[in-house]
Amino acid sequence: MSTADLPAPGPAPGAAPGPVPAERAEAVLPGVKPRPVWSYLRFFRSELRLIFLRRRNLLLLAVTAAFPLLIGIALRLAAPRPGNGGNGPGVAFFNSLAGNGVFLTFIALSSLLILVLPIVVSVVAGDSVAGEAGYGTLRYLLAVPAGRTRLLSVKLLAIAAWGLCATFVVSAVALVVGAILFPVGPVTLLSGVTVPLAEGLLRLLFVTLYVAAAMAALGAVGLAISTLTEHAIGAIAAVMVLVVASEVVDQVPQLAAIGPYLPTHWWLSFDSVLRAPVDTYGLLHGLLSFGVYLVLAGSFAWARFTSADVTS
């Protein structure tokens, strides 16, 4: 069987001598100089639009933004008197808040880190690949071809951007609410030293980035879980269960030995930024832990995603 015995359709036999590509392909496919960086950014932007314009995600973001407001109002109504005693970062923050609205940011971040921020990140991360598999869009993206590694890296970056955005929303709303409801001025750190407001805000920026890094690591774990299934809800639930389980295990004194290896263990270590001198032990271990989780989960996701059949 050859092109020669073809009926009607197709080019006439002999019309295209030899392998056709060069000329014909040029005619058929208007030549676009491959610009990998621009095309990558275009794909990334499309991924961001998918995440940020989705109503469910916007709702989640709105609810997240409401928390600092509610916390601020609640604390304003029942403002604890300064120097009320107690210890631990929570109580220390609350005591400091009465003196400076900036502390609302730290209070909001540490309260939302327990569940709300992880949920916000889990929903998007768990949905990332599993959701596409569930809709069936994954097979079409790969047939485009989006490229498996390229697709996965875009997903990971977009999840990290989402986590960063959610964290900054919390910080920003808390900062504004704190400034409205409480006095603002030079910041008295937990260790008693007072620093100028500008430095206080700089420390606040650092804390926010630290939390965003923690959320990026969680996002990578979510992405890895997401490559295992085509049920987005299952992947989302699995990430949340993982977070809660890690937090619970971290509270059990008998399991203290494995504590430092848990994904959530170092999340709240940022309170040392509010002391002078800054105790870098916890911070560096935290960043190391996030990095390790990011690399391990990312590698796992890559190994899985580039070798698995897409049968959805």
Partner: peptide
Amino acid sequence: VEGPAFYPYLNGEDNLARMDAADRTA
């Protein structure tokens, strides 16, 4: 392949735009 599959919450045009954005040579 095996029937159509798109993002249900996007319109037709945006769905095609999404596919096109994934194409590094488009």
